[in-house]
Amino acid sequence: MTNDTRPILVFGATGQQGGAVVAALLKAGWPVRAMVRDLGSAKSIALRDAGAELVQGSFTDIDMMRAALNNAYGVFSVLPGNLAIENEVRFGSEIADLASQSGVAHLVYSSGAGVGDEPSGVARFDAKARVEAHIRTLPVTATIVRPVIFMEMLTRPGFGLEKGRFNFFVRPDQPVQLIAVEDIGNVVAAIFADRTRFGGETFKIAGDTVTGRELETVFSEVVGRPIAYARFSEDDLAANPGFASISASLEDGPLADHVDLNFVRKIYPEILSFRSWLSGAGREALSDALGYGSE
């Protein structure tokens, strides 16, 4: 286990994953340097108040990113989901290049579980695969994590909870793997704590495996009334290319290839199940979802 006192630079620190990583690293005692676009934003101020050192910059400012890497032990790299595909490849590769050139001890890149050994035909997945491939060419110790579907995604609008039901991508008897965003942070903190064990590795991370029927059961029990489950119809999937690509990947693509949960629990034993997340940290988001469309 490392006892290095140099900071870890976190990109995407005001986003879901980056914010979770900042919180977990601070809890573990790491000095954290967070790169943000706006030092005065509410999220940036919250990071500062939690104990992170803030540096202002953007993915297009190479000089600022290079300066932010000064004397850093490690780098956590995650990119926003709204980037143009070529920018995702460009920025992900440039961050890795800078980390390598700066001599950091450990780079952790958050990719996605939709990435596989072969091109998927889904532009977003294949962009991450290109970043992964570039990282592997560099003389830097790196760990690549591929988080599965976020539990938080299930409480967003568009899945029917506001109408007392839940629609998703899997058949009632088909399993899907999920992870709470806070546990991405916890797993990444554990990875930074053991560079020798995790350096050079690429693996998926998940917290739970549930079927459509089990989603129905958990939602119903936590809500306190029946929440019927059904897979999205073929018409629904055809009307939403993003949903269609996720559904196809869950059928016979990379998302159908499940991680051994015991492997993840050995990294972070307290990882959350969907039931425990929904009953705890996810309860407020669930309440908000149930109220969508109500007066």
Rank of each mutant, 00 (worst) to 15 (best):
D4I: 07
R6V: 03
P7I: 13
T14C: 03
T14H: 05
Q16A: 13
G19N: 04
V21A: 11
G29A: 05
P31Y: 06
P31H: 02
M35D: 03
V36Y: 01
D38P: 02
D38W: 12
A42P: 02
K43E: 13
R48V: 12
D49P: 01
A52S: 08
A52Q: 08
E53T: 15
S58F: 02
S58W: 01
F59Y: 14
T60G: 01
M64N: 04
M64I: 01
A68L: 07
L69W: 00
L69H: 01
Y73S: 08
V75C: 09
V75G: 00
S77M: 03
P80R: 07
P80Q: 08
N82G: 01
N82Q: 10
I85G: 01
E86V: 02
F91D: 06
E94T: 13
A96F: 03
S102M: 08
L107C: 11
V108N: 11
V108A: 11
S111D: 05
A113P: 06
G114A: 15
G116S: 03
D117L: 12
A123P: 02
R124N: 14
D126E: 14
D126F: 13
A127V: 10
A129N: 05
V131K: 11
I135V: 06
R136F: 00
P139R: 02
T141H: 13
T141S: 14
A142F: 08
V145Y: 03
V145Q: 03
T155H: 13
G160Y: 09
R165A: 10
F168C: 09
F168R: 09
F168A: 13
R171T: 04
D173K: 11
Q174I: 06
Q177N: 07
L178T: 01
I184V: 15
V187F: 07
A189M: 00
I191F: 04
F192C: 04
F192Q: 10
A193G: 14
T196F: 11
G200H: 11
E201S: 15
K204F: 04
A206H: 04
G207D: 04
D208F: 07
V210Y: 07
R213T: 15
V218I: 15
V218S: 03
S220P: 04
A230F: 02
R231G: 02
F232K: 05
D235W: 01
A238N: 09
N240S: 15
N240Y: 13
G242N: 07
F243L: 13
A244P: 00
S245R: 02
S245W: 09
D252H: 14
L261R: 02
Y268A: 10
Y268S: 10
P269N: 09
I271L: 08
F274A: 09
S287V: 07
L290R: 07
Y292P: 04
Y292A: 09
G293T: 10
